[in-house]
Amino acid sequence: MTQRNPPTARRLTQDPHRVRGGREANLEAAIGKEVRAHRKQQKLTVAALSELTGLSIGMLSKIENGNTSPSLTTLQTLAHALSVPITAFLRGFEETRGVMLTRAGEGVETRRDGTRAGHQYNLLGHIGSNASGVTVEPYLITLTEASDVFPTFQHDGIETIYMLEGEVSYRHGSEVFHLRPGDTLFFDADAPHGPEELIKLPARYLSIIAYPQAR
C-alpha cells in the first residue's frame, strides 16, 4: 500500500475570496467600463489609445462613458491595441449564472456507467452548458455490506474524493490508499480507480468529477 506525503503549501494562482465588481445592466456602460479599466491598467491616456487605434478622442470618450454602441470592428481594434480578447469587454454585462440548491436528503439517486450492486449514487446538483466550459458532477456515494468491491471505474476528467464516514482502501492505477473521514484523494480519472477493500462500513464519501463540456 502506497501512502504519499501531504503536498507542500503552494501559492494560489487565484484569490478564492476575490469578487468581481457589480455587473452593469446596460451593455454600452459595461463595455465602456471595461475599456477604461484596461486602458488605465496599461497606463495609457485617451490620447495615446487614440493614436494606437486611429479612433478619435471624442469617440473613445463616448465609448468609455457608455454613450455609444461600438461596432464589432471598433471592439476588435480596441482589443488588438490593448492586447485583450474582445470578450474581455463584455465581462461586466449582467447575465444569468446557473445555480442549484439540493436540500439534505434530496439528491437524485442515479446510476453511472460501471455502477455495481450496493453502490448508492446521489447526484447533488447539475448545471448544463455554462461559461466555464467545464461540466462538474457532484455525487454522494454510500457503500454498505451489500456493496461489491471493484477497481474498474475509468473515465475522462479529474475526480476529487472527500471521505465523510467509514474507511475504505481506494485504488488508483497501481497504488492503493487507505481513506478515513476527512481524507481527500484528487486524481486523473482516466486511470482505473475504485474502492478495493471496505474496511469500515457504512462508508460515505463525496465524489466530484470535472471534465470539459462536449463541443
Rank of each mutant, 00 (worst) to 15 (best):
E106V: 14
V84T: 09
E95H: 06
L75D: 07
H38I: 14
D113Y: 14
K62W: 07
E106W: 10
L44V: 02
G58Y: 11
K62D: 05
V46C: 04
P85D: 02
I63Q: 00
Q76K: 11
V99E: 14
E51I: 08
F93R: 15
Q41L: 15
T87R: 10
F89A: 04
T102I: 04
T74S: 11
G114S: 03
Q76G: 06
E51G: 13
A47S: 13
S61W: 12
S56C: 11
L101M: 07
I86V: 06
T45K: 03
F89I: 03
H80R: 14
R103P: 02
L44N: 06
L49K: 00
S83M: 11
E64G: 01
E51H: 04
K62M: 09
Q42G: 10
I86G: 03
T110P: 05
P70K: 06
L82V: 07
T45S: 14
T96C: 00
E51Q: 13
T45F: 01
L72Q: 11
G92N: 13
F93M: 10
M59R: 05
R97F: 00
L78N: 04
L44Y: 14
E109K: 13
L72N: 09
D113L: 15
F89E: 07
V108T: 13
Q76I: 12
R39S: 00
S56Q: 01
E109T: 10
L78C: 01
H38T: 01
A88E: 12
P70G: 01
H38G: 09
P70Y: 01
R39L: 06
K43T: 08
E106M: 15
F93N: 11
L72T: 13
R111M: 13
N67Y: 10
A47V: 12
L52N: 08
L82Q: 08
A48W: 07
E95W: 07
T87K: 12
R97N: 10
A79I: 10
A81H: 06
F89Q: 02
G58F: 08
E109N: 05
P85L: 05
S83D: 13
N67T: 10
S83L: 13
F89P: 05
G107Y: 10
S71R: 05
Q41C: 11
H38Q: 13
A79W: 09
A79S: 01
S83N: 14
I86N: 04
E106T: 09
L75G: 00
G58C: 15
R97G: 03
L52W: 10
G58M: 05
T96Q: 01
G92A: 02
R103Q: 05
T74L: 02
G98E: 03
L55F: 07
S50C: 11
G92H: 04
G107A: 01
E109G: 11
S83A: 09
P85W: 03
A47I: 14
N67F: 13
S56R: 02
T74R: 03
S61T: 02
Q42N: 02
I86L: 08
A47Q: 07
I57S: 13
S71C: 04
L90Y: 02
L55K: 07
T53W: 09
T102G: 04
L82H: 04
K62R: 08
S61C: 08
L52S: 08
M100H: 08
L78D: 05
V108P: 15
T74M: 00
L44W: 06
F93T: 07
T96S: 00
G114I: 00
A81R: 03
K43Q: 15
L82S: 10
T96D: 00
L78Y: 02
M59S: 03
